[in-house]
Write a protein that binds this DNA or RNA. Structure first.
Lengths: 153, 153
DNA sequence: GCAATATACGTCGTATGCGACGTATCGTAT
DNA sequence: ATACGATACGTCGCATACGACGTATATTGC
């Protein structure tokens, strides 16, 4: 085995470990939501979509998907379910018949704007609270950098 | 607005940004797999499971799920599909009728052992290759720490 | 020895999550 | 004006992904 091979193997092990960690992170982030914020009956992605729609009423589906880093088909499905619950509204753009604009339902706008900041104190924020300030910044930077590296490919 | 409120808000923003980054990371990691490693016809989780099964033939389903950070029901489904393709085998433990042990199919054992290291050079490893060595370690550490913080809750 | 409990899995219902495909609409070049 | 490509969505098929529930098998308590 050459020196280069060992290097490659070491990087592979690092990557494999990071993959395991990232799966575990995803798992840990999704889990408590079901129980902790059960009152709101919103899953993590639904929460993210609601936040975005409240922040930008009338957002196009495509931009919504990009904002939450989801394929438009996935975003469409989430909007479907939120619409079925009456928390959101789809309206075709009068100036461009192709785009459907997403609005928060009038009834929930105020409620969501108030409740969301409190509700979004999910497992991630709880975990971050346990870290030192420097650690928090470091992890945020690392995650951002990793995203950057992955997306520039 | 008190000083504590601002602090909480800042942490919320940090958490929200990290959530976006983590979604984007997940998305970027899953995507090229479909095309790049299309020959192997294996998805990311299937790859992770194959790796684990080849590394530990006869592993119990529960331990398999834990190793890849997935619920046992999810692991069961993945094993179902791999079994249907003949890449894996389920055998009930003769000493304990409850456990089903997972074995790599005899035909693929050698092949997988050789092919996997090359195939697992997925988007993450590509991205990591673009980073400086120090950055790599830093990101790995940060991700590991984040996992630790999330799981200790 | 047997009832109560615990464990390991399989299965189901639901929610993501994606690419591929079809459709309606818009912009544009002829 | 009309054909043609581009764009935005909706929908489908499939693969995760989870908790809840049921079932079969061990283990424990008495």
């Amino acid at each position: 085995m050459t020196k280069g091979d060992r290097k490659t193997a070491r990087r592979g092990a690092l990557a494999a470990q990071m993959e395991r960690d990232l799966r575990a992170i995803r798992r840990a982030m999704g889990r408590p939501l079901e129980s902790e914020i059960a009152r709101s009956e919103l899953t993590v992605p639904q929460m993210a979509v609601m936040r975005e729609v409240v922040a930008s009423p009338g957002i196009r589906l495509k931009d919504l998907g990009r904002a939450v880093s989801l394929a438009h088909s996935t975003a469409s499905g989430i909007v479907d379910r939120l619409e079925k619950r009456g928390m959101i509204e789809r309206r075709t753009d009068p100036e461009d018949g192709r785009v459907s604009r997403i609005y928060p339902a009038a009834v929930v706008t105020g409620f969501v704007r108030d409740a969301l900041p409190a509700l979004q104190a999910g497992p991630l924020q709880t975990a971050l609270a346990r870290a030192r300030a420097g650690e928090r910044e470091e992890m945020a930077r690392a995650v951002g950098r990793l995203r950057e590296l992955l997306e520039q490919g």
